[in-house]
Design a protein around this nucleic acid. Structure first.
Lengths: 351, 351
DNA sequence: TGTGATGATCGAACCGGTTCGAGTAAGGAA
DNA sequence: TTCCTTACTCGAACCGGTTCGATCATCACA
């Protein structure tokens, strides 16, 4: 069932069918109706490949999401879901590409073979060869994340520095003096992952400002690693009374470790960090945290990309988000310890 | 940079370039090398749309995942990830389609516009109009899940009936007599979702066999709903000592409800069910559960689909999986109650 | 030297759309 | 009646590949 078949049955030429369906040139009401009836009868839909070949657009966007370690985090799921739905609203399909690097086979296919009109990249690194490559060849893309030099490129990101700092200030305000930081896996930090770097930086700087004693750790993206990490924390400094984490997958293990160590959250130990709200609300006690607005970020990324595709010469745009800390149930004023009487924490922690 | 450009620079015809690259006809070693050098120099990659148009295959598979309620569960993420990676291994890309019904716009695009060679469907219903449609038009597809009449179609599924029954037997063996069942959301059950129906059926039947007193519930796919559901359970039958759940997203809320009610898991209350192992290991105490082998299922689905695409006339194949229950820490023998001294649980449930 | 087989290459057609320039018919004005 | 618009429709070319049939040169053999 191709356009020629429709044309034949409607007794017109192929081009007339094309114009009748696209309305790019006027077609008489009579023939339009005739064509439409044949189209409806046969359930004709134009072939996407042919259309893409002819007008140079696939109406597809690529979603590049490297497998961080061996599995995916809940946040990635939220991005995938929201990007897909937002794209559908603009009549774009989403092609997944599980590629980590520039040289990746799958990545090359997306670009070189022109499978997509534009791309959204996740899990950005401070120095990201994929983005460099895309910028170099002028391929329309939007990053979910921000490189070290984001000027002139399109992205939607989270202000990890500010968020981690906000967590530190929140804990410091509550009187905590010895706190730990649980980062994403060391391998990702070394690879230069933005969230891991900026989060660590924000944490360190804010802790220094407040004169806190800190230790920083990396944990694998799973519960067992989180548990092991927490055990190290308590072993290396048993006086630690709070921690900040960026690693939502490790959270379950952290909580378990605290329970096993007999530290009650939040009475004996406060936990906070930057995680998707779904997770923060799933654990018990619910996590006081900066909620990652994954849905919004996915939607914004699609909007930026669509804008960029529709107006190729628009100057670069971006969104830097810094959601507030949602007060839930995992933080409390530091207990009175011999060395460190708790200062007045001010307003009560939780509503 | 198209094939004509390559041909010109190599001083040969377009067809020779095509044959040199595809090796579908012999090409002299000399010209092959000459062409290859030009290709390498220019980084030429054939246009996917043109190729798809010419040979009728897009080398893309569609992954149809209806938004279950407003957000996605962890299991869906695992499917998406494993399908994408398995597909990449066969040189297929994955196109996402967030569509629930046959009539869906996005679904129509996948099929009618020939964007994909085949499709993998998730969240199958016992009577599934999408699958009926695909079967009717002979479109190659594989379901992750099994309809009421799976004969003659391709699928990879979980034996939810057996798994739910195994959970019941596990609890019965431990001496529990009054147990509850927490299903997926009522709206999904009513819509005929396979896992919800078969799980409920297996639970009910096994409980009847063992002469247990049961109540069955539905819970929304989030922690708050799980909490509310658990409160209902304890309110409607405070003597309940255990539950089985299919709803991994509600698990956090269930645990929280139990903690709030002062029921210690597993001492006062046992919890088990069918969830992805990642979740089972994240919660504290870790969940004794039938682990959903999401990765394996995604991989198997891709393998079946690729087989079907390569050999269009192969008779239908399927995989029905029934993973064993992994004993973790959330179940224990029922406490001694006045009405019901715990019987000897006999042999341990699992090897 | 002529003949047939063999291997390498080419040109043209095709996949199914879109788009441009041109042609035709109808209607209004001169 | 003639001329000019205007409105609509058509044919052909093109997008960038693949593939079929034919051509041409080379070489072995009679």
């Amino acid at each position: 069932m191709n356009i020629g078949e429709i044309a034949k049955r409607a007794g017109v030429s192929r081009s007339t069918v094309s114009y009748a369906l696209s309305a790019k040139r006027p077609v008489s009401e009579d023939t339009r109706r005739k064509i439409q009836r044949v189209v409806d009868e046969l359930g004709y839909q134009p072939n996407a490949s042919a259309r893409a070949l002819a007008n140079g657009r696939t109406n597809t966007i690529g979603l590049v999401f490297p497998p961080a370690g061996n599995h995916y985090t809940g946040m990635q799921l939220d991005f995938i879901g929201s990007v897909t739905e937002a794209a559908a609203a603009y009549d774009y399909d989403v092609l997944l590409s599980p590629s980590g690097m520039d040289s990746d086979r799958s990545f090359q296919r997306l670009l070189g073979e022109r499978r997509v009109d534009g791309a959204i990249l996740m899990e950005i690194r401070l120095e990201d060869d994929r983005l460099d490559h895309l910028t170099a060849v002028g391929f329309p893309s939007v990053a979910i994340g921000r490189t070290a030099h984001p000027e002139g490129s399109w992205w939607v990101g989270l202000d990890h520095t500010a968020l981690a700092a906000a967590c530190v200030h929140h804990l410091a305000d509550l009187g905590h003096r010895r706190i730990a930081f649980v980062n994403r896996p060391g391998q990702l930090l070394r690879a230069g992952y933005e969230s891991a770097h900026r989060g660590l930086e924000g944490f360190t700087k804010a802790a220094a400002e407040r004169g806190l004693t800190v230790r920083t750790y990396c944990s694998g993206d799973d519960a067992a690693s989180g548990l092991a990490c927490l055990e190290r924390i308590l072993h290396e400094d048993p006086a630690t009374t709070a921690l900040v984490t960026l690693n939502e997958a490790a959270l379950g293990g952290i909580y378990r470790g605290l329970a096993q160590a007999g530290r009650h959250v939040p009475r004996d130990f406060s936990v906070t960090g930057v995680v998707a709200s779904r997770w923060a609300e799933t654990v018990t006690p619910q996590l006081t945290a900066a909620d990652v607005p994954a849905e919004e970020m996915g939607r914004l990324a699609v909007e930026l990309l669509v804008k960029r595709l529709d107006h190729p010469d628009t100057p670069a745009r971006y969104h830097l988000l810094a959601p507030p800390i949602s007060l839930r149930a995992s933080t409390a004023p530091a207990g009175i310890t011999p060395a460190d009487p708790a200062p007045d924490p001010g307003a009560p922690t939780n509503p």
